[in-house]
């Protein structure tokens, strides 16, 4: 396909532009809306890579469920009135933010250029996935055979998180 690089740069560009908007926007709700666009662009890039299941789940879980929750909380708390005022923040905070961002970026660049792992095609090529019977089947089979332990451990972790939340809230109300 020769059109896909064009679409990749389109969606990547939009994603970067809206990520900047998430950071620089002064009202929390516009930040949240921009973040939805970013997630949507990610999903589009996954779809370009023929990872349709990941794309659908990206939209369903992140853009669909988690961001609804974010926006719900923002609207419920009326956080829009507290527009962040950057002038009030101290010089120390600004300097340390720039410093740590710089360290982070440098770290990423170092890993990217010095990583011993060559980025190439993994064992699951497009033809193989097609032979197994599509993305969804390939991923579910892997998830419930080879990676069943990490999968179950993740769900236990989430369960612990939920129970923890309930306990914290209950203690306050009692």
């Amino acid at each position: 396909m020769e059109i896909s690089p064009l679409f990749f740069y389109l969606f990547a560009g939009i994603a970067i532009a809206f990520s900047l908007f998430v950071v620089f926007s002064k009202s929390p709700i516009s930040s949240a809306f921009s973040l939805i666009v970013v997630f949507f662009c990610f999903a589009a890039i996954y779809a370009l890579l023929e990872a349709h299941l990941i794309a659908a789940l990206q939209i369903l879980v992140y853009a669909g469920a988690i961001m609804v929750l974010f926006i719900f909380v923002i609207m419920l708390l009326g956080a829009d009135k507290e527009v962040l005022d950057f002038k009030k923040s101290s010089v120390f905070l600004k300097c340390s933010a720039v410093l740590f961002c710089g360290i982070g970026v440098c770290g990423f660049a170092w890993v990217l250029f010095h990583s011993p792992i060559l980025i190439g095609t993994g064992p699951h090529s497009l033809e193989k996935i097609k032979m197994v019977g599509g993305n969804t089947r390939a991923i579910s089979e892997l998830l419930f055979s080879e990676y069943v332990l990490p999968f179950e451990l993740t769900s236990i972790l989430l369960l612990v998180g939920i129970v923890g939340c309930v306990v914290l809230v209950k203690r306050k109300s009692l």
Binding site: H52, A56, I59, A63, G64, I71, T136
Partner: peptide
């Protein structure tokens, strides 16, 4: 004819809710 079938419907329908929210 998508491989992900009706997950696609759920995903896109979940976006429709932002119309109401916005």
């Amino acid at each position: 004819d998508l491989n992900v079938g009706f997950l696609y419907i759920f995903a896109i329908a979940a976006l429709g809710i932002y119309g109401v929210v916005v």
